[in-house]
Design a binder for these strands. Sequence first.
DNA 1: ACCTGAACACCGTTCAAGT
DNA 2: ACCTGAACACCGTTCAAGT
Lengths: 227, 227
Amino acid sequence: MSETTRVRRKRGSITQDEIVTAALRLTDREGESALTFARLGHELKASPTAVYRHFANRNEILRALANHLDGISIDGYVPTDDWRRDLEDLGWRAWRTAITHPAAAAISLSLVSNGANELRAVEWVLRAIHCAGVSGRDAVVQYQVYTNLVLGSAGAQAARLSAADAVESSEGWIQVYAPKDPSRYPHAEAVKAELTSVTYEEVFAKQMQMYLDALAMTSAGRSEAPA
Amino acid sequence: MSETTRVRRKRGSITQDEIVTAALRLTDREGESALTFARLGHELKASPTAVYRHFANRNEILRALANHLDGISIDGYVPTDDWRRDLEDLGWRAWRTAITHPAAAAISLSLVSNGANELRAVEWVLRAIHCAGVSGRDAVVQYQVYTNLVLGSAGAQAARLSAADAVESSEGWIQVYAPKDPSRYPHAEAVKAELTSVTYEEVFAKQMQMYLDALAMTSAGRSEAPA
DNA sequence: ACCTGAACACCGTTCAAGT
DNA sequence: ACCTGAACACCGTTCAAGT
């Protein structure tokens, strides 16, 4: 923490890419709440307001961050002939990105970025669905179902991890709705013991398999057999 | 807009319930960003800081709001012998609440409220899953899958509607991806025409049916036949 | 015991002024 | 053309003072 000799940054020295990279570094290190113009400016060694030359507002930064995460997810992905493997692969890529960058994913994953990487991912999902023998209107519906599933699960997991990083969980305050009467909730009670042994990753795996099974049924008889 | 004669509110005249109700009114009327202490205080005809006597912080208000929405969803629900009908019913109840109160749902639905209504909903979902012939560890996993699906879809829809209320852009359906090089995205291009004819409600319906089919398969042979 | 007003340390955003 | 500093209208939260 030495005193920094603040130099004026040359014009054109700040790019959208540099800002997004700084935003990811910031959120990875210090969580969701660290993504402010002030701290972004400090991270870039520039004035907070300089960012406004490159993004219209905070939401545009979030959308660019979403697209950046999409890029991390699909980096190195190559489509194959096996639609089932492809959809599973793409899903786990999103999951891994979400748990690697939970804070960034939590604040940006639910946004439609309209970015190039998102478009690429959309294309690949539609390709896999086409390979599964679903086309036209049904393909659009299946694309949406798949996206809901993957982004919903990965986003929820990111939110959980990000929240766990951030809060100390406020004890000492009135737990208004305590489980006062466990006998009224027999099924919840019966299953209580198993709760700790189930992981969200396992749930995601199961959810993915159920979806892929159902999709295979939808296109039953038409799906091309793997070589 | 006459000048109000501000009277000091009597002690004990503000309750958690009144605050949550005011919060819902506020977000329904003016969107997500309206949920501030200042406007909450104004809505309650009280000082903004009075709310702190009843909630530790803003997040606790959001959790109470989530529980309130849970209450709206399950109001009047009665479990039946038909697990499939029950899970479908509970899912659509959540969906309807989300589209009726999009702003409130968008900011609170992803939170675990730990409230009484949430606990009741959990119990009923577990009950239905039990009726479907799934128990123990598998029941916990299936509960999570179902919750992921319903809250993910309803929450995403709420966020879309809430954002659409706030900004002017975005037509009914999928955002137009910058079509700079359509030939590189043949599957997206091929399916473009169908986009406008598919609604998110239809996607949710499909997703629900796929899940229920898959769950029925999981418990195949063991499910009790409806009378 | 509960409600209020002033104060604090932040926010996103705007804009005239620098270089 | 791009970066900066000051200013504006807000935030959530704290706390001593009222009743």
